[in-house]
């Protein structure tokens, strides 16, 4: 039973990072209609940037924070390149993000090399209800939940957030209200970059990252996002947690090499069940 709870804790922690990546997918998709294949890259770059900053002597916390800010800026640049001129179709932008993701391998290998890196997160164990778990787990879950709530407040309560929500509800009508949908798209990419970067700086202490780790991260995040139809952030967040827990259980009780495959199968089964309940007419 204790073992089960430990797997559960580990799963919720890694699931929280999937949830952050998934939220990034959702934010960008809702506002721009683009599936951003470079979403996993933000996490990889976040990990590498934090690693370099920590090695340069920057204190923990600050280093991770700066790394997240830089990934937000990178998100903005990806948005600029991918969205291109006003009126670029989302499918064209999607291919551009895929190209940028592959290009990022060259950048990472040139700057950092092709070996995996890691750094220490919060050390020590925390005992909650007889289960001891790494403090880093608690940090990850806490950071993810706080970020998610802050985003909900931003989208629901601020004027800028309302404009973003308006864009995701009806882009063409939003344009006629004087909203510059293109710039809102850039903002969404910056938010997506920050979310991916945050996932990366939190995840790197748990599992080392290398230049092509973005695929695994993006697949998990995308699966979670798809769970919410790419538009419902709460469901996407829940999807991330389900995936994380499923993977931790497979890795714990069976073999870790099967974790992603089995977790994705669980996800598929859940989605089929969801679809059969909802009936074919909706969405």
């Amino acid at each position: 039973m204790t073992l089960f709870l430990q797997y559960l804790a580990a799963g919720i922690a890694s699931g929280s990072t999937f949830a952050l990546v998934a939220t990034g997918f959702v934010v960008i998709y809702r506002v721009t209609g683009v599936i951003n294949f470079a979403q996993g890259v933000f996490a990889v770059l976040g990990g590498f940037l934090a690693y370099s900053l920590l090695h340069a002597g920057v204190a923990h916390g600050l280093a991770e924070g700066v790394a997240v800010l830089i990934t937000a800026a990178i998100g903005l640049v990806v948005g600029l390149v991918a969205l291109g001129r006003r009126g670029t179709p989302p499918l064209a932008s999607l291919i551009v993000t895929l190209g940028l993701a592959i290009f990022s391998y060259a950048v990472v290998i040139t700057v950092w090399g092709d070996l995996p890196i890691s750094y220490d997160g919060l050390s020590g164990l925390l005992a909650i209800g007889g289960v001891s778990m790494q403090r880093q787990y608690v940090l990850i879950v806490g950071a993810a939940v706080v970020t998610f709530l802050a985003l909900a407040l931003f989208f629901g309560r601020t004027y800028l957030g309302m404009a973003l929500t308006a864009c995701s509800s009806d882009q063409r009508a939003a344009r006629l209200m004087g909203i510059d949908v293109w710039r809102m798209g850039l903002l969404a990419f910056a938010v997506g970059g920050a979310l991916g970067g945050l996932a990366g700086v939190l995840l790197t202490p748990l599992q080392p990252v290398q230049f092509d780790s973005d695929v695994g991260i993006a697949v998990n995040g995308f699966a979670a996002a798809i769970f919410g139809g790419l538009v419902r952030p709460v469901t996407a967040f829940a999807g991330g947690l389900v995936l994380g827990v499923a993977e931790a259980m497979v890795a714990g009780y069976y073999r870790s090499s099967y974790e992603t495959a089995i977790a994705l199968a669980v996800m598929l089964a859940l989605m089929l069940w969801q679809a059969s309940r909802r009936g074919p007419t909706e969405e």
Partner: peptide
């Protein structure tokens, strides 16, 4: 109308045509 928003929020979105603030201002 924009879904997922209240009536007042919908009307507020209309003000985008005269508000000065951009992303940086915000």
């Amino acid at each position: 109308l924009f879904r997922g928003m209240t009536v007042l929020e919908n009307v507020m979105v209309g003000a985008h045509s005269w508000t000065r603030h951009g992303l940086l201002d915000a």
